[in-house]
């Protein structure tokens, strides 16, 4: 049976699309047949993060309008043939598709793919409702910030109300040094507040921006960055493997390390 997972957050800009691209790619690398679905009609971005923006011919709307077959709209990744993208229409609004239509598309995808990741738009309106319509599981992406956690909590409530019970948490953009300085909520704080199982923690990493510039998900790198390792770990946990949380603790900041830093000695 295929796994249908919606990636959602409530708040925008917390890294839903980055997580979808990396998780999709990591699952495909692990041999799973993966379809990533952009449910952000009107503001699509998943194609950019995957570097597939120039290969889009048809979109999900064209499939629904009967103008093409589903396989014609699917963009197969050349780097990783197990991965395909179902693009959203960019020139239409979120109201241009209904939950029932979304269900039809996803149902069709389950015949070929065993992982279907749906990248939800921000907000809790029509676009969100479309993206959760067919989902059986959800991954909540949040950052350790007050507004992101509040919105995540709201979305968790809405998912429960829509009978999506397998809801797991990814904490994105954690800054261990700030947590150590008590200036940011810890993983435990956020998980304690939201009270849902933790799927993974992604450290804040400049490489994320570098990878989006290039349109190459981090998990494709030869030498994985910290965030790249974290995304790979999340994909393994999603497949049922027991992978311990990455050690994100920073070296002890004491008198001697400060003395070293002061005199330019790298530790």
């Amino acid at each position: 049976m295929s796994r249908i997972i919606v990636m959602t957050s409530g708040k925008g800009g917390v890294g839903k699309t980055t997580c979808t691209a990396n998780l999709g790619m990591a699952l495909a690398k692990a041999g799973q047949r993966v379809a990533v679905v952009d449910a952000d009609f009107g503001l699509r971005n998943l194609d950019l993060l995957l570097g597939l923006e120039n290969r889009i011919v048809y979109t999900a709307l064209d499939v629904l309008a009967g103008e093409c077959r589903l396989d014609q709209a699917l963009v197969k990744d050349k780097r990783q043939p197990n991965l395909a993208l179902l693009p959203a229409a960019q020139n239409r609004s979120k109201e241009s598709i209904k939950p029932e239509q979304m269900k039809r598309l996803i149902k069709a995808l389950t015949k070929v793919y065993n992982f279907i990741l749906i990248d939800s738009p921000a907000g809790i309106e029509m676009g969100f409702r479309n993206s959760i319509a067919a989902a059986r599981e959800a991954i909540i992406v949040t950052t350790p910030e007050i507004s992101a956690v509040r919105d995540a909590d709201r979305v968790i409530g809405l998912l429960e109300a829509n009978d999506i019970k397998a809801v797991r948490l990814v904490i994105n953009r954690l800054r261990p040094a700030m947590v150590a300085a008590e200036q940011m909520m810890s993983v435990k704080d956020v998980q304690g507040i939201l009270s849902i199982p933790l799927l993974g923690v992604i450290p804040d990493d400049e490489q994320v921006i570098v990878s989006t510039n290039k349109g190459e998900p981090l998990v494709l790198d030869e030498k994985l960055s910290k965030a790249g390792i974290a995304f790979t770990n999340v994909s393994q946990r999603l497949q049922g493997e027991k992978v311990p949380l990455m050690d994100l603790s920073i070296p002890q900041d004491n008198f001697f390390t400060r003395l070293k830093r002061l005199f330019g000695v790298s530790s």
């Binding site: 910030e145 007050i146 956690v149 509040r150 909590d153 709201r154 409530g157 947590v179 008590e182 200036q183 940011m184 909520m185 810890s186 704080d189 507040i193």
Partner: peptide
């Protein structure tokens, strides 16, 4: 420690939400 502030504020706002 702003971490304590954010936790306290979140607890209250989420309870109401």
């Amino acid at each position: 420690h702003s971490r304590d502030d954010v936790k306290r504020r979140l607890q209250i706002v989420l309870a109401h939400d």
